[in-house]
Simulated assay, not measured.
Amino acid sequence: MNNYVIIDGRFKSIGEELKKYGFNVILTKKNMKVYDAISFHPDIQLFVDEEEKKIFVDKQFYEYYAKRIKGYEIIEGEAVEGGYPNSAKYNAVKFEKKVVHNFKYTEKNILKHIEKKKYKKIDVKQGYTNCNIINLKDKLITEDNGIYKNLKNRGEKILKLNKVEVDLIGMNYGFIGGATGFFENKLFFTGEIKKNPYYIKIKEFVGNNVEMVSLNLGRLQDVGTIIFMRGN
């Protein structure tokens, strides 16, 4: 089985660690049309519906990903340029048969797909939704109070953290969702999660069946999410 992982192209060391787990690592290319902090972030460039084997990609990078990913339908989407909220087009979160995003900003092909598949739309104010959520498929973790209240009120299993110490290149801080990625029973972190003040709280929430893996030394780094895809 050829499983893929997409990682911010500036973090090759994390990519090397992920290769040890048998993943085919794809490093992102820089989007020259957005601000530098997010210019390599996967969740700024694409959205994956793994269940349907579809990937919606910023047309600037369509050929790049189409050459490297097999077994998925790659759909050419709108270009991402400028700052927020245009930069949030692909930053939605899918879990189960639900999608969370600020749907005013969602890329048009993704929106059509969501409506065609009749996924439940959970509309939130935060456009950088994926950056702000750790997606465990049946459980979610966030720092965003609006996201937390919205999903908690809908009966979702969600943990609210106060501000987590996460670095982001060129910015004062990053987000916890952007510093993680989940695949099968492993929750990967871009830094030493055991040294994070929220380690115990997260571990208790995810349960004993989920292994928490640190891919790097030092503080957590927001890399625009580690995006995993199961191969054929």
Results as ranks from 00 to 15, higher is better:
Y128R: 05
V57W: 04
K19V: 10
A179K: 01
E143Y: 05
L217Y: 14
D49L: 02
S87P: 03
F103D: 00
E16H: 09
I114D: 00
Q126P: 07
Y105I: 07
N185Y: 15
K203Y: 10
V124E: 04
N185D: 15
Y90Q: 02
I38N: 01
I169S: 00
P197H: 13
V210H: 06
G15H: 05
F95S: 08
K139I: 09
D43Y: 06
Y148W: 10
I6P: 00
P85D: 07
H113Y: 09
E165F: 08
K112L: 13
K20F: 10
G82H: 09
E96M: 10
Q221D: 09
G224F: 02
K108Y: 14
V48E: 02
D123R: 07
S13V: 11
H41S: 02
I114N: 00
K53P: 06
T28W: 03
D138P: 06
G146M: 12
Q221I: 06
V80R: 00
K89D: 04
K20E: 13
N130V: 10
I226P: 05
H101W: 11
F182P: 00
M1F: 14
M1N: 15
Y199N: 08
V124P: 05
T142F: 06
G22T: 14
K104L: 15
Y119R: 04
I69E: 04
P42T: 07
S214C: 11
K112R: 14
V100Y: 01
H101K: 10
I26N: 00
M1S: 15
N2V: 15
E156P: 02
N153S: 12
V80K: 01
G181Y: 04
F175G: 00
K203W: 08
I122F: 06
P42Y: 05
L217D: 14
E204M: 12
G178C: 07
K157Q: 13
G191Y: 01
R10V: 03
N86F: 11
H41Q: 10
L217Q: 15
E192H: 08
E115K: 14
G155M: 09
K116E: 15
I38Y: 00
N102G: 11
Q60D: 12
N185E: 15
G231F: 07
V223L: 06
F175I: 01
F40Q: 04
Y148D: 03
E156K: 08
E17A: 10
F11P: 01
L27Q: 07
A79V: 14
I141Q: 04
L168Y: 04
T106Y: 06
